[in-house]
């Protein structure tokens, strides 16, 4: 990501009473740092607000209460960003900054800012920076499992923590518009995903490409929000027939999702994926010209990633939904479910 664009984005986001602000927290801190940021945020709230933010860790309804849809259609619970004071909002963002990698935090800010662009272009109050919610399942802890949820339109982050172990699965990212201008600079929240996917596709030889390309339309995510517990038969080209370089490209592409979390956690996840790379599949549906609107999927024993442009009458490259799942450990269940 162009550092100048990132700086401009953060400066703009920190301006104005209704904006997302740059925080002073160290991005990607260990669990103790995340807990500290969470407790600091809770300390800025009154009892009533704290009651809205913290849910029981066993609250399955809240755990699954995330979606790609705008908040006016899919009702979230938790603390609405638009209902926070500026210091509270800064403290809320510090929780995210501590939980995510610098690039992951930046991606989240860009997705939120895209929704603000959508609000301004459509004049609809159901979109925008204020319409994102933060909640915790369980009390912030360095030892006991707990969870951070942050979401709204085109964003459903579910970070489960258990000691120093963390997972982002399942989480939804998306963007509309998926490309926009900010102070004369072009911002693409999911630009890395798009470019790396086309690079991987173009690296495939004819035989590999024939296997990778599905002969039918993919109009949406198969395992998007609301599809917990489902796993589909993998399709496409299998990692076992990819070259070493192509395998690294596939992992690098997956890193756009796994890398939303702190570097050490992301590396552990990619190492896990590397062990079963031969059993990991890459599938493609749609045009193959670089930059066109195409669906792709990565599926392995411990990962499912889908990227689905939305053909809703407009330019599908400007409206994208993605999902990241771990069929063996969504919501970190292997760390806490008995």
């Amino acid at each position: 990501m162009n550092k100048m664009i990132a700086s401009i984005l953060l400066v703009l986001l920190s301006a104005g009473s209704n904006s997302f602000a740059q925080t002073n927290s160290t991005p990607g801190a260990p669990t103790a740092g995340i807990v500290a940021a969470a407790q600091k945020f809770l300390a800025t709230l009154d009892d009533s607000q704290r009651g809205k933010v913290v849910f029981d860790f066993k609250d399955e309804a809240q755990r699954k209460r995330w979606s790609n849809l705008p908040t006016a259609i899919f009702k979230r619970q938790g603390m609405r960003m638009g209902d926070l004071t500026r210091p509270q909002r800064d403290a809320a963002l510090a929780v995210l900054a501590a939980s995510l990698s610098p690039q992951g935090y930046e991606k989240v800010l860009q997705i939120v800012e895209a929704d603000e662009v959508l609000r301004k272009s459509g004049g609809q109050s159901i979109f925008g920076r204020d319409e994102y919610y933060l909640s915790f399942l369980g009390q912030p802890s360095t030892t006991e499992p707990w969870m951070i949820q942050f979401g709204g339109h085109h964003l459903g982050l579910n970070v489960t923590l258990a000691g120093e172990q963390r997972t982002l699965a399942p989480s939804h990212t998306g963007a509309q518009p998926a490309i926009y201008e900010l102070e004369g600079k072009t911002v693409r929240p999911l630009g890395g995903e798009t470019e790396k996917a086309f690079a991987l596709l173009s690296s495939l030889n004819e035989s590999q490409r024939k296997q990778a390309i599905l002969g039918f339309q993919m109009r949406d995510l198969v395992l998007g929000p609301g599809r917990d517990g489902q796993t589909i038969q993998p399709e496409g080209v299998k990692g076992s027939v990819l070259t070493e370089k192509q395998r690294e490209m596939l992992l690098d592409l997956a890193g756009e999702w796994t890398g939303i979390l702190h570097e050490a956690v992301a590396k552990a996840k990619l190492d896990e994926m590397r062990k079963s790379i031969a059993e990991t599949w890459f599938a493609w549906s749609g045009p193959i010209e670089k930059g066109s609107a195409a669906y792709f999927r990565i599926q392995g024993p411990t990962v499912i990633i889908e990227y689905a442009p939305q053909r809703l009458g407009g330019d599908a490259t400007r409206h994208v939904h993605t999902i990241y799942r771990d069929p063996t450990n969504d919501y970190g269940i292997k760390w806490w479910k008995r």
């Binding site: 259609i73 959508l118 272009s121 609809q124 809703l312």
Partner: peptide, 22 residues
Amino acid sequence: ALLAFPSAAFGHRDDQYLQATL
């Protein structure tokens, strides 16, 4: 509000019936 909003700009499929079968 949803009906008034242009479908091309809106964030989910509003004129289609999605039927997903597993």
